[in-house]
């Protein structure tokens, strides 16, 4: 019985959040039905809900999801491999790190996705352009966090390794890399998030690929309800991916 108020206190914010969302949707539905909001600009939420079935059955949303996921996976592979290797290289060469780290940080703040017209010329209008944009935009955080991860290796661990006469390679693989792994994963996760955002964005902009292209096509067809449903689908996929990677990161940090 004593736990009941506690459980209620925990449920209240979630209920308020969901209730607020439902209230906004209901209000929008009402305003559109009353004619206060133009239904040719904002479709009825109920129509959007019904359109989910249509985009799944008629617009091959699952195969489009797989196309986007494949591009994201390829970009993630490149980001992990190159970002971690470059980060480890910068960490080993301190002068190089001091010379380049601020450049990499500057690149992380630069609008790298704007390079897409250039990539279109170099790679053509195909999946490679999308993967390369994902790779380039995800690389800076992966490099920066890898450097940070290696720099944070406790000195005492390295001293223990040296006292056991480990070779530099053994010191790296048995001590420095496992110790830096959780922070490296944070960087790879950030890089993957940047990649995914830019991959869907470029798909939409160049009208090629998976989910981004679906939103663009539906917009060009002026199929408003399905377009809103497709946008909701992209958001749900992004949120699911974000939550899953966040949980994995927490688990890694806890087990480190």
């Amino acid at each position: 019985m004593a736990n009941r108020p506690l459980a209620e206190a925990k449920c209240l914010p979630a209920a308020l959040g969901l209730g607020g969302l439902a209230a906004v949707l209901a209000l929008t539905e009402m305003l559109i039905r009353l004619g206060w909001v133009n239904r040719f600009i904002v479709p009825l939420p109920s129509e959007v809900f019904v359109s989910f079935e249509r985009i799944i059955l008629e617009e091959n949303v699952l195969s489009r999801f797989l196309a986007t996921a494949g591009e994201a996976l390829a970009a993630a592979f490149l980001v992990s491999l190159t970002g971690v290797a470059l980060g480890a290289f910068l960490h080993r060469h301190r002068l190089l790190r001091r010379a380049c780290e601020s450049w990499v940080a500057g690149l992380a703040a630069a609008p790298l996705v704007l390079l897409y017209p250039l990539f279109l010329v170099i790679f053509g209008r195909n999946a490679l352009t999308i993967v390369m944009i994902g790779f380039v935009s995800g690389l800076p955080p992966a490099i920066l966090k890898t450097v940070e991860g290696f720099a944070g290796t406790p000195k005492v661990l390295l001293d223990v390794g040296r006292s056991f006469s480990l070779s530099p390679s053994q010191l790296f693989w048995k001590i420095a890399f496992p110790s830096a792994l959780p922070v490296i994963f944070v960087g790879v996760r950030l890089g993957l998030m940047f990649s995914l955002i830019n991959i869907v964005g470029v798909e939409f902009l160049i009208n090629f690929g998976g989910l981004g292209q679906l939103v663009n096509e539906l917009a060009e067809r002026y199929d408003l309800a399905a377009m809103y449903a497709a946008i909701c689908f992209v958001i749900l996929v992004s949120v699911f991916f974000f939550i899953a990677s966040e949980k994995l990161e927490r688990w890694l940090l806890r087990s480190a």
């Binding site: 869907v200 964005g201 939409f204 939103v215 917009a219 946008i231 992004s238 949120v239």
Partner: peptide, 12 residues
């Protein structure tokens, strides 16, 4: 959770 979603798809 909405923060890291690709905002450009809202352009239409």
């Amino acid at each position: 959770y909405l923060g890291p979603t690709p905002k450009i798809i809202f352009f239409p």
